[in-house]
Each structure stands twice: as C-alpha cells, then as structure tokens.
C-alpha cells in the first residue's frame, strides 16, 4: 500500500541512501532497524520529500506522491521525526490545531479528539510544548501527526531519550492506532524489545541500503545478527 522504490538521495553532494526499497501493507506495522548513522532518518526524510532526491519514487495506495512535503502530508502521509520537533512556543492544543488546520480539518474537533485519545496531554493542553518532558513531547508529536489524519505513519526513533515507563505507553499507542484506526506504521528503531512489542516484520538497514528483510522473532533469536546489527 505504501511503497518506497529505489530511493537514492542525500544532502547536496553527499549521497546517503542508495537504492533503498520498502513496502508497508495496509494495516501493517513494519520496523526499520539499523545502527546510528546508517540512513534511517534520511530514508524517512526522503519519503517526506525533505531531502534532495536523486532517484526513486514514493507511492501511497498505488499513486505516486507529489514532490512537495506539505502535499504528501495531505495525501495521507503522517510523520513523527526523530527528536520530536514539536513547535516549542505553541501550546499543546495549538500544535494539534496547526496540523489539523493545515489539512483543512476542523481544528477544535481535532484538539478535542486528541486530548481524548491521549489523556496524558489533557492537563497540559494550554502549556507550551517546549515545557513538556521528552516523553510528553513524543506523545504530542504523535498526536500532531494523527491530526493530519494519515493513512501511513512514519515514526522515527520514538523511544530515543525517553523514560522506560513512557516507552511502554508509546508502544501501546502504536498498537491501538494500528488496530483501531487501521493506520499502517513504519517505525525506525534501535530498541529491539520495543520493535518486538509493536511489529512483526522488519527491514535491516546498513550504509544507506536495505540489506535484509526479516521477522523480528527470528532476528531476536540470532544473537550474532543482533550484535552486528546494533554494533553492540
């Protein structure tokens, strides 16, 4: 349903990803694994149209997506970047309202819905996003992406720098979204345990290329592969 084909690109002269192809079926959660710096984030940015494209294409539901990032979002691609990047001097409600308004959804309804979906945010509705903790920001970033009403959600390292207790919450949210709303999810991670909780299938990335496609269970049983993969 969501497909990245032969993605090749990077920043200015430096090519970072090469010929990477990924496929996510409807209603599926897929993990993208790999060490730091292998190109996971770049691949996501490629999918969002945020970097220089050399070759390849991105399609959703069989249709190639337009080049402009904002139009990709309106076509149904949701994005939660690594490091969250909530709008720090917008309140929690405004963060959600901005995303909803941009996609011409009713912003009041979107805010009410989000606060209901994420009770964690409710007491913070009028707090500036920059004042939230890392975990709260992560939840807000997800709520904001959901306000665009996506068909596919790209989640880049949602557990990075987050307290363990909230990591479990985030895993719960991902599952709920997937099961109850039928949103397909591609999640880039280094935290294998987390991946096991949410996904069944995974792509393995190294040096800008997709080097393997495995089931997570099989991966976890293969200690050697794990060590190589994460460089532990």
């Amino acid at each position: 349903m969501f497909e990245i084909t032969n993605a090749t690109g990077g920043y200015e002269k430096t090519r970072i990803i090469e010929d990477a192809s990924i496929k996510v079926d409807k209603g599926e959660v897929v993990a993208l694994l790999g060490r730091n710096g292998v190109g996971k984030t770049t691949l996501f940015k490629y999918a969002m149209g945020l970097i220089d494209r050399e070759n390849g294409s991105v399609s959703l539901g069989g249709k190639e997506l337009p080049a402009a990032t904002s139009r990709r979002v309106r076509a149904g691609l949701g994005y939660v970047p690594q490091g969250r990047f909530v709008f720090p001097r917008l309140t929690v409600s405004e963060n959600i309202a901005a995303a909803a308004a941009a996609n011409r959804h009713d912003r009041k309804k979107a805010v009410a819905q989000a606060l209901e979906d994420f009770p964690l945010l409710k007491p913070k509705a009028n707090t500036l996003a920059g004042k939230l903790s890392g975990g709260q920001q992560q939840v807000l970033a997800m709520a904001r992406a959901l306000a665009t009403e996506p068909e596919v959600l790209l989640l880049d390292e949602p557990t990075e720098g987050i307290q363990p207790s909230i990591i479990d919450d985030i895993a719960g949210i991902i599952k709920t979204l997937n099961v109850e709303r039928g949103i397909s999810i591609l999640v880039a991670e280094q935290d294998l345990e987390f991946c096991r909780a949410v996904a069944k299938r995974a792509y393995v990335m190294d040096r800008g290329q997709i080097v393997d496609e495995v089931s997570i269970e099989a991966l976890l049983e293969n200690e050697e592969l794990v060590q190589r993969l994460l460089g532990v």
Binding site: M48, F87, L90, E94, A98, A102, T148
Partner: peptide, 23 residues
Amino acid sequence: SYGVMARASIQDRQMASAVGIET
C-alpha cells in the same frame, strides 16, 4: 488557523511543511 500555522512555520519551517502547512 492562519495565525497558529504562521507561528508553527517560523518555529520550524521544515516540520511545518511536514504536518501539511503551505509555508
């Protein structure tokens, strides 16, 4: 809506476009 989107755009232009805002 315009106001909130405008503030979002100046705080993080790339992220604003990544939630669908026509910056």
